[in-house]
């Protein structure tokens, strides 16, 4: 689980940590990725078991013939990423030219729209009842009690691959340009960078990563419904992870995911009130605020040399215009 969340934290890091895009609708990409994967891999349900089980198509049947069940898993991962990428492309194209804050609202809107879509369009994915019995990767290779270890390895492999990818990308000139934009958009634009294009690319990249995360999630939990992707577990906790670990630092994002998820799960065993899920909900918010106030860099902060200069800029306001 922590590994899957680490994937999201990585994706969010591309948005916020590197580019300064404020995405509060992670749940939307999460859900989209998970549903895409689930739809692609689920076989038609046994009508005897699930009377009202309806969903669009029986895609896996097609896949099984050509690729074998397990390669199809990889296709699902890719497709989940692609679906999110396309949505991000459209939304980003519309909102990224505008004020920063609009993106936040837009992502919130996507999350809500995706949720409503899967909730209301019963023919797509069984409405509020959700899809269950989603096949697992390499199912049957190992006895089910050991299967989780296998899947853990799979998640870690994907995570490491994405980590390497993001790390590489961010050290490239492209990544440097993104950071320049985050620090001072006007200056970056003045030095000839197409700010919009860079932001859009980063937005899509982050969304793709989130889509892959969603697919991993679907195959782990084996059940997706519109209720799975509530703002808490779909968005808020991922923010907490990134903030704790350190925005702008991929290792930090992963570390934050493990720490926060550890706390989240660990808190269940605390005595009395402390293990109350509502209390934990509350603490997620407090944690975010506390990190911003007390340790803006997170555990592993990025070395921010430029940021302090940006801080003085508000004082120059009277000169403008």
């Amino acid at each position: 689980m922590a590994g899957i969340y680490a994937v999201f934290a990585l994706g969010l890091n591309v948005h916020w940590g590197y580019t300064g895009l404020f995405n509060i609708g992670i749940a939307g990409f999460f859900a989209l990725g998970a549903y895409t994967a689930a739809l692609l891999t689920s076989p038609a349900a046994d009508p005897l078991l699930f009377e009202e089980f309806v969903f669009a198509g029986d895609w896996a049947q097609l896949g099984v013939l050509d690729l074998g069940v397990d390669l199809w898993f990889l296709v699902a991962l890719a497709a989940a990423g692609a679906a999110c990428g396309v949505v991000a492309l459209i939304i980003g194209y519309v909102t990224l030219r505008l004020n920063d804050d609009y993106l936040a609202i837009a992502t919130l809107g996507i999350a809500e729209s995706v949720r409503l879509f899967f909730l209301n369009e019963k023919w797509v994915a069984n409405g509020s009842k959700g899809l269950y019995q989603i096949p697992q990767f390499l199912e049957g290779w190992l006895p089910s009690d050991k299967y989780n270890y296998l899947y853990m390895v799979v998640v870690i492999v994907v995570l490491v691959a994405l980590f390497a990818l993001v790390q590489r990308v961010m050290q490239s000139p492209w990544g440097r340009a993104l950071r320049a934009i985050r620090e001072d958009e006007v200056a970056a634009a003045a030095s000839g960078k197409n700010v919009f294009r860079f932001k859009l690319q980063a937005f899509v990249l982050g969304a793709v990563i989130m889509g892959v995360g969603g697919a991993l999630f679907a195959h782990h939990i084996r059940f997706v419904s519109p209720l799975t992707f509530d703002p808490l577990l779909g968005t808020f906790i991922i923010w907490a992870m990134l903030m704790v670990g350190g925005a702008g630092n991929n290792l930090g994002a992963i570390l934050g995911a493990f720490v926060v998820w550890g706390l989240w799960v660990g808190a269940r065993f605390l005595p009395g009130e402390l293990s109350d899920p509502n209390f934990r909900f509350f603490m997620v918010g407090v944690l975010i605020v506390a990190v911003i106030l007390l340790r803006p860099g997170g555990i592993l902060g990025e070395l921010r040399r430029v940021t302090r200069r940006a801080a003085g800029r508000s004082a120059v306001r009277l000169d403008d215009g």
Partner: peptide
């Protein structure tokens, strides 16, 4: 401004958590 908005996101979660508690 985005960090301020971020903080307000944290507070939003905390306030809602408080309501649920």
């Amino acid at each position: 401004a985005v960090v301020m908005a971020m903080a307000s996101l944290g507070l939003a979660i905390a306030v809602r958590g408080l309501i649920q508690i």
